[in-house]
Every structure is written in C-alpha cells, then in structure tokens.
C-alpha cells in the first residue's frame, strides 16, 4: 500500500518507547491514571472522555470498521457491475471462498508471492535500517545531518514515483542498469527481460520496497539508540566488550521493543504491498506469476467487476493480517495493560 510505510511510524515510535517503561510503575511519571479518574473527579465529568473521543470513534467506525464488515458481507455475494447498477444481489454462501481456496493460483502464486516477499523484505528493511542507524550514530554532526537528509529524501519519494523510477532503471532495452551491465558485458540486453521472470521481478520490487522502507526503520532505531544510556555502554567497554558484543548484549535487549515494533509494522506493510507490484510491467494481471493477494483482489474486483470474489480474497488477506496483529499485541502487551 502506498501510504503505509510513510505513515505508521508514529505509532511505532511512541509505542515502543512506552513498553519498557510502563510495567514498572515509577518509570512512567504521570502515565498511570490515578484512581479517582475512574469515576471522573469533580472537575472532569464522566462523559467527558466519550465526548473527546467521539469524533475520532465516529470516523474510525464509519470508515474502517463498518467497511470491513461490508467487505465480509460482499464476500458471500455474487456482486458485479450489474448488481451495483440495478441494486439486486444474490447470496452465494461460501462459493467465493471455495473458488479462491481451490484456485491453484492462491497456493502456488499469490500466497507465496505475498508471504515470502514480505518475509524477505522485512528482514532486509530491518537489517539495512539498523545498519544505517548504527552508522548514523557514529557519524559526526555534519555527516549525520547530510545523511539523514538523504534518507529522508528516499522516504519522501512517493511509492508511485519510486516504482516508476525503479522500473525505468531496470527497463529491459534501455534502462540504466541494463545498459551499464550490458556495456560491462555482464548481461546481454538482447536476451534479457527481468520483468518476465518471477525472481528478478520480485528482486526489483524488493529494491524498491527496501529503498522506500528503510528510512523509517533507520530513523526509529536511531531515536532508540539515543536513549541508551552512555554509561552502560562505557561500562561494557571497560569490561572488554567489543562493538558487536556491546550491540548484542547491551543495545539489543534495551531496544527489543523497538525492534519488535519496526519488524511487525514492516511485516504488515509488506504483506499489503500493492502499488509497487501493480505498477510494474506485467504486475496488473498480464503476468500471472507475479500476482500477490493485494493485486489479485484489486484486479478481480475492479478490472473484472467481480466484487464478491475480490472481497473474498481481501477477507483472506485481512485474516492473515489479523493473525499477525495478534502476534503484535502479544509481543507488546504480554504483561502490561494497555
């Protein structure tokens, strides 16, 4: 999804910070509401919180929860363009799900393309992001300023533009990469088209997604690194710990919640990746090998007008993500309250 990698860090950042602090009470000054709030105190009536959150809840229910229910309903119907215009619709029970679940495309193509792609991209994004964060932490203020600006620029480039640029770079006949490698004699531009094969296709998509996603990880982890007390690292250094050991045994445990959050958020974004695949050559349906759940659902619903079937695919993707959400919640909130 275009928006997600740009947006969600907000959650991650604060959330991650809270987790280590909150369980142990005193570390969270003022964070823990005192008892009298339970019924509201004299100055703040009990309905006040509801009044305050009402607008946000209305928007969330109206535009996220309710449509989600609608998707679920649609997935049990035969719903096409005609139904949309005439207003008729017919219930087909589990037919749409049967069709999706028995389609070899799901098991051989869409699901692996979604899950494996997400796994690889999450790993790379987090690894690259962490490495860049560690690098940034070591640089002097000037170099750090320049490099942060540069990665911000990478972050700022919209997914749409980014995808066009990466496609452009790897274009089979006159793309920059192809021409460079071709002039070095490493590939033969006369016989190679990277977009037709599954692996190179997703390798290019991976470069795109990692390029767009690592700045968020780098900035978040850098922010986390700033909070690691210098004394602890110095003490470890005095004990003779090298750079790797200090990272592994001091920094990592302290930043565990941060890593958990960036990993899980990246997982969610990379499962949902749509624009970056859809806009690549063959990504909008011609090359069946490169469909993922997101593009498959969109093409089925919008290009073929089979809204019911498209919704069924979307429901499967949502269920998959809800499982991940559950993991997310468990990781973060095992022992503490929200």
């Amino acid at each position: 999804m275009t928006t997600s990698p740009d947006v969600q860090p907000g959650v991650a950042v604060t959330e991650s910070r809270q987790t280590p602090a909150a369980p142990s009470g005193p570390a969270a000054p003022g964070g823990r509401p005192s008892r009298r709030d339970r019924a509201g105190n004299g100055l703040t009536p009990g309905w006040l919180p509801w009044l305050l959150q009402a607008p946000a809840l209305v928007v969330l229910f109206g535009l996220l929860v309710y449509p989600l229910v609608r998707v679920a309903v649609l997935s049990f119907q035969d719903f096409g363009l005609r139904e949309l215009v005439t207003g008729e619709s017919s219930w087909v029970g589990l037919d749409n799900f049967t069709e999706v679940l028995t389609d070899p495309l799901l098991w051989k193509v869409a699901l692996p393309n979604t899950a494996v792609f997400a796994a690889v991209n999450v790993f790379l994004t987090v690894a690259v992001g962490t490495a860049v964060a560690l690098l940034l932490a070591k640089l002097g203020p000037w170099a750090r300023g320049i490099l942060t600006s540069a990665i911000m620029v990478a972050w700022a480039m919209p997914a749409v533009t980014g995808t066009y640029v990466w496609v452009y770079l790897f274009d089979a006949r006159d793309g920059f990469v192809m021409q460079t490698l071709g002039s070095l004699g490493l590939v033969d531009p006369e016989t190679t088209n990277w977009f037709t094969e599954r692996l190179p296709f997703f390798a290019i998509a991976t470069a795109n997604v990692v390029h767009h996603g690592f700045p968020f990880v780098a900035v978040t982890i850098l922010a986390g690194l700033m909070t690691v007390p210098k004394e602890m690292l110095e003490a470890a250094a005095l004990d003779g710990a090298g750079a790797w050991r200090r990272f592994r045994y001091v920094t990592m445990p302290l930043l565990k919640p941060v890593f958990a959050v960036v990993t899980i958020l990246s997982t969610i974004w990379d499962f949902k990746v749509f624009t970056q695949i859809y806009l690549m050559p063959g990504g909008s349906g011609t090359n069946r090998e490169v469909l993922n759940l997101g593009t498959w659902s969109y093409i089925t619903a919008i290009s073929q007008n089979r809204y019911g079937l498209g919704a069924a695919i979307a429901v499967l993707l949502t269920l998959l993500l809800l499982v991940i959400t559950a993991v997310y919640l468990r990781t973060l909130f095992k022992q503490e309250e929200l």
Binding site: D171, A172, R173, E190, T192, N193, T196, P281, G282, N287
Partner: peptide, 8 residues
C-alpha cells in the same frame, strides 16, 4: 523481436 517486448 526483443525480450523487452515481452512486457510491452
């Protein structure tokens, strides 16, 4: 043709 044309 050319391989590039495969996705044209």
């Amino acid at each position: 043709s050319t391989p590039a044309a495969t996705t044209w």
